[in-house]
Simulated assay, not measured.
Amino acid sequence: MKIVVVTVVSGRHEHLAAQVRGLRGSPEEQVDHIVVSMGDDAIVDVLARSGSAATCIEMPAQHPLPLASARNLGAAAALDRGAELLVFLDVDCIPGPEMVEHYRCAATLPGNGRSLLCGPVTYLKEKDIGAEGEALTLLTAPHPARPNPPVGAVEHGDNFDLFWSLSFAVGAATWTALGGFCEDYTGYGGEDTDFAATAEASGMGLRWVGGAHAYHQFHPVSDPPVEHLDDIVANARTFFDRWGRWPMIGWLDAFAARGLVEFDGSGIRRVVS
């Protein structure tokens, strides 16, 4: 099975280098890596210094970051290379040594062909910076909000809102049928929830793949992510217009509690400070 890993990136150079080293530890011999640079001219050098054979596709700089269109561009390049399985991996994530293999096995099981395949993700702490290889696997503690089946098991999911784009795999035919990520979304938030909603509406499945571990490298975050407020508000409106319900409710409620937006479930308005 021809497998291509797709990563989109702007900044996070050390995270990308660690991801490249993690992919080198994969036992799969037929794994290509496509990296889409969103206006970051340094990515080619980062890959070269890391000894990576990844293909770098460069996009012009845009603000907000064009996450959806960058993933679609990377996927198109992967399909041109004959990819049968696309593995999307956030630049912050280091793949576990058997992540790709577990995705491959899950993709070949009967009934999984028209499904989104998701692996568990462990969020590393600041004290874990630099952990790789065996030291990394010893830190395995997947995020409790998502299923974590036993290694080798594949669990059927029915809550598509739990899908996340940090780490997932999808067959080439399924990707083509879905049409990729909706490019009406720009910047942070909502595009992955929309992608999963499209899959559910299309009658596709959601599978949680035991053992397909990825490790999200530490970086400072805010909760709620106020630095992405404008993106989240705009993308929430787009999602509501497409699906008739609000995504990211927890964040929208938190923004409202801080007086940053007015949100009552029927509409949202950015409060001008």
Rank of each mutant, 00 (worst) to 15 (best):
S10D: 00
G11H: 08
H13A: 12
L16G: 06
A18E: 12
A18K: 04
Q19R: 09
R21Q: 06
P27T: 07
V31F: 03
D32W: 00
S37W: 05
M38L: 09
G39H: 04
R49L: 12
S50T: 06
S52N: 13
S52L: 13
A53S: 15
P60D: 12
H63P: 00
H63Q: 13
L65D: 02
A70I: 04
R71L: 12
L73P: 00
G74K: 03
A76L: 12
A78M: 07
R81H: 10
G82L: 02
L85Q: 02
L85R: 00
V87S: 07
F88L: 05
D92K: 09
C93G: 01
P95R: 00
G96W: 02
E98C: 09
E98P: 00
H102C: 08
R104Y: 03
A106P: 07
P110K: 08
P110W: 10
G111H: 01
R114F: 01
L117V: 11
G119Q: 09
Y123R: 11
L124C: 00
K125W: 06
D128E: 14
D128K: 12
G130W: 10
E132A: 14
E132M: 14
A135D: 15
A141Q: 12
P144T: 04
P149A: 13
P149N: 10
G152L: 09
L162P: 08
A169W: 08
V170H: 05
A172I: 03
A173D: 15
A173S: 15
L178W: 11
L178T: 09
C182A: 11
E183A: 12
D184N: 10
G189A: 07
E191H: 15
F195I: 12
A196G: 12
A197L: 11
M204N: 07
W208V: 05
G210E: 04
G211D: 06
H213C: 14
Q217T: 10
P220M: 12
P220H: 15
E227M: 06
I232P: 01
V233M: 14
A234F: 00
F239C: 02
F240D: 00
R242F: 05
W243V: 04
G244K: 04
M248K: 10
W251P: 00
L252W: 03
D253V: 10
A254Q: 06
A257S: 15
G259Y: 03
V261T: 13
G265W: 06
G267S: 14
V272L: 12
